[in-house]
Nucleic acid binder design. Structure first.
Length: 576
RNA sequence: CGGUGAGUAGCGCAGCCUGGUAGCGCACCUGCCUUGGGAGCAGGGGGUCGCUGGUUCGAUUCCAGUCUCACCGACCA
């Protein structure tokens, strides 16, 4: 490809509305341009990287026996009403009507469509297992799109759906996809973790997220430094069960704690450590139901764990009025003793062993000391509702410690069970001629997001440093002075040789000063660069610069093409 | 939807407080010069100041409304 005939509109200055590095660099490198909030044009260079990643995904999906197809992005409302998600999905689902007033939506995901196809076509256990995938544009009307391709409203996604005769066969399909995902992200040279995850609005029994580690990631994850356990903090189990307080029950006593509202203030005032106190939180559902949550004073609540335990759709901290009605006390002095309303009291498991604790007296400026469960208050259940912290013991192996990371969710695999097949009545006849419900799994990869995540993880002050497998070009050839006929002839020669060898090469033949070309080539992140200048040429030499290390190798004119070819092949093979 | 901030040339911004018909850097066009890290000189083109209404002799500037965008919270590939 000739640079002068191609289209790479680079930008020298950082656009002011781009917050994260991948967004800034994709704009500056001329890979994407914004059309509307969360909606982007993929310019030629950006599309090349995306296509590269797509073909890696295709290869691995095909290898894992998934079959490619393509579904429409416009979907009829009836299917969504049938699955129950038309009402449940909310405003994120972009809905509209056609000229006949029939309702449609832009597909945010395709469980309904694929299940509808399968229920029409699959009749027998003999036809399974089956796994269909597509690479297609999705639309989710996100409330707050941000970070460029990282969270767009319109985005390219690979989604796959598996269909099996029973749960254990579905587990096998899940495992195949899981392994394919591992290979996909390994091939891209990404530093990532597969973590246990919450299933969210897709539903199902269990799931794993694939997280590219990056400080700008929107998710927090933990992983064990000794075993393979890793989880989204939303999901991560707390390993703490043990109590830390004394065992002889002292008499309950109310003490004055003027203006002492936070755990830290109360603990300091009463001269105890925070782990001898109990933190009381009140949460409300959108229906107005209340629940009281108890945690050890130095612990934090994981709202999602509480929400999942309660089975609520929404959870939020109760309002001051709700709290006053329930406890008779302002925030800061809450506790489970002497409640005005009968609300369930959910205690973290750690509470079970605590004795002689400090907690709020449900009265302004008053706390209890030496409170004991059973004698002074009761709880309706002990549940793991605590947010894990870095340094916690691993809940699996117990010998390891949990490390905490930020991550970008690039892939997510779900065991759906029969959630959609039941709702849409997707059944088959088993060997005994009995009707059975199909077991499903679904598997997503954010295509654009993965490319963005790769940039997030591979860049320096000069721009992008693409991993070879998803680089838009493998190599660039820079002619230092285009007016020098010798330089141009040599550069052209190298360009043709590389093309002949199947190397994807960008020939920077522009009549620009060398500095401009170097800056642009660095910015767009081409892994290898050959510089052809008159000085080196006089000795029959050119330079090969490696973008990732900055290493510069002087090479003889005759050796360049084969050396580059070898380096590229090695880089691609290394990831397989 | 709630909270914050911003809309002035393709991009990044100033001007607005104190109203008088718009400016800087980069980019773009022409010419000269230059060719190993975003050069230099000279000349030039481009803006209904987001939109609507109000106040005023006069509004980019003041007021009201509205739209869009970004950032902070719940969703998610």
């Amino acid at each position: 490809m000739l640079y002068s005939r191609y289209f790479i509109p680079t930008i020298k200055e950082t656009p002011s509305d781009a917050e994260v590095i991948s967004h800034q660099l994709m704009l500056r490198a001329g890979m994407i341009r914004k059309l509307a909030s969360g909606i982007y044009n993929y310019l030629p260079l950006g599309l090349r990287s995306i296509r590269k990643f797509e073909s890696i995904v295709r290869e691995e999906m095909n290898k894992a026996d998934a079959i490619e197809m393509l579904m429409p992005s416009v979907q009829p409302a009836e299917l969504w009403q049938e699955s129950g998600r038309w009402a449940f999905y909310g405003k994120e689902l972009l809905r509209f009507k056609d000229r006949k007033d029939a309702e449609f939506c832009m597909g945010p995901t395709h469980e309904e469509v694929i299940t509808d196809m399968v229920r029409r076509e699959i009749k027998s256990y003999r036809q399974m297992p089956l796994n269909f995938y597509q690479i297609q544009t999705k639309f989710r009307d996100e409330i707050r799109p941000r970070f460029g391709l990282m969270r767009g409203r319109e985005f390219i996604m690979k989604d796959a759906y598996s269909f099996d005769v029973d749960s254990s066969a579905a587990d096998l399909s899940y495992e195949k996809m899981f392994n394919a995902y591992m290979r996909i992200f390994e091939r891209c040279g990404l530093n990532f973790r597969a973590v246990e995850a919450d299933t969210g609005s897709i539903g199902g029994s269990s799931s794993h997220e694939f997280m590219v580690l990056a400080d700008s990631g929107e998710d927090a994850i933990v992983s064990c430094d000794a075993c393979r356990y890793a989880a989204n903090v939303e999901k991560a189990e707390s390993s703490l069960f043990t109590a830390v307080c004394g065992t002889v029950a002292e008499p309950l006593q109310k003490v004055s704690t003027p203006e002492m509202k936070t755990i830290a203030e109360v603990a300091a005032f009463l001269n105890v450590t925070a782990d001898k106190t109990i933190k009381t939180l009140v949460y409300a559902s959108d229906a107005g139901d209340l629940v009281m949550a108890l945690l050890r004073g130095d612990h934090e609540l994981n709202e999602l764990k509480l929400k999942n335990y309660l089975g609520w759709d929404e959870i939020q901290m109760a309002s001051e009025e709700q709290i006053l009605a329930c406890t008779g006390s302002p925030v800061g002095f809450l506790g489970p003793i002497g409640l005005k309303q009968d609300v369930p009291v959910i205690a973290d498991r750690v509470i079970q062993g605590m004795t002689n604790v400090v907690l709020g007296a449900n009265e302004k400026d008053q706390h209890y000391i030496n409170a004991n469960r059973g004698r002074d208050f009761e709880v309706s259940g002990f549940v793991d509702i605590r947010a894990v912290e870095a340094g916690d013991a691993c809940p699996r192996c117990q010998s390891g410690k949990l490390e905490m990371w930020r991550g970008i969710e690039v892939g997510h695999v779900f065991k759906l069970g029969t959630k959609y097949s039941k709702a849409l009545n997707a059944t088959y006849l088993d060997a005994n001629g009995r009707e059975q419900v199909i077991f499903m799994g679904c598997y997503g990869i954010g295509i654009g997001r993965t490319v963005a995540a790769a940039i997030e993880q591979n860049h320096d002050e000069n721009g992008i440093i693409f991993p070879v497998p998803i680089a838009p070009f493998h190599c660039s050839v820079v002619a230092v002075n285009t007016k020098d006929a010798g330089v141009m002839a040599a550069a052209e020669e190298i360009y043709f040789c590389l093309e002949k060898l199947g190397v994807e090469v960008l020939f920077d033949d522009r009549d620009e000063r060398p500095g401009v070309k170097f800056k642009d080539n660095d910015l767009i992140g081409i892994p290898l660069r050959i510089v052809v200048g008159s000085k080196g040429l006089a000795e029959g030499k050119v330079e090969l610069k490696i973008r990732s290390t900055g290493e510069v190798l002087p090479l003889l004119l005759d050796d360049v093409a084969t050396t580059v070819k070898q380096l590229i092949d090695a880089a691609l093979a290394h990831k397989l």
